[in-house]
Amino acid sequence: MSRIQTLFQQKHKRVLNVYCTAGYPELNSTLPVMESLQANRADLIELGMPYSDPLADGPVIQQSSAIALENGMTIARLFEQLEGFRDRITVPVILMGYMNPVLQYGFERFCADAARVGVDGLILPDLPEYEFETEYGAIIRKYGLDFIFLVTPETAEQRVKKLDKLSSGFLYAVSSSSTTGSNKQMNSVQDYLQRLESYQLKNPVLVGFGIKDRESFDAACAHANGAIIGTAYIKALEGAKDVGTATKEFLSTIV
């Protein structure tokens, strides 16, 4: 059983996944940020690999990516930083990023290195399901990594079920059709999450996009297994003197 699956066996409710950008705010912040997330009760860590053209991201995460790239972050450097991190970090870790840098690194080499250092799963929002099924899925499975697809309120029932079947670990329910960090109202999010609940999916569901405080976290958790916080945490790290303190302060307002 994968580390992610084990987590969901032990905890079904209010699972907290926090997104951070590798190499942000400083090149060598990656590990300290991850350690402070774990210390302050994050159940999962989603580590973003910075990219020059992050299509699905709003201004805050875009900016963190740009800073991380300026800091000199690369996939190769990230794997160097992650070398041996399992001595210190026990929570599941997922790498999130876009296809182009991963293809350039070499897809199989990427999966092999991720598995070797102790990463548990991947989110690649611009890897489509057709290419996953015909080419990349087998490589991901070969290295024992979980792969998490996204669904949105506009995703039709049949497709949700298909993406659930292809996913392992959990399913990522985007709260509204938007880029990350949008302030779109989550009015109808309950209906949508109840709809997902009624499909009896194989995977747990985590809700992401627009989760920024206790209220939105509670709302997301009402009909899902937990939620993902990204933009709000990146904002909390902005200009922080000490990532440990900033993380502690931020997460204490959520859990």
Binding site: S52, D53, T74, N100, P101, L103, Q104
Partner: peptide, 21 residues
């Protein structure tokens, strides 16, 4: 350019060794 993904399709893309456009 090298093979890569930009703006939704796989094609030739001018990019760094690290895959930044």
């Amino acid at each position: 350019g090298k093979p890569g993904v930009l703006h939704g399709s796989k094609s030739l893309v001018m990019q760094t060794e690290d895959g930044q456009v």
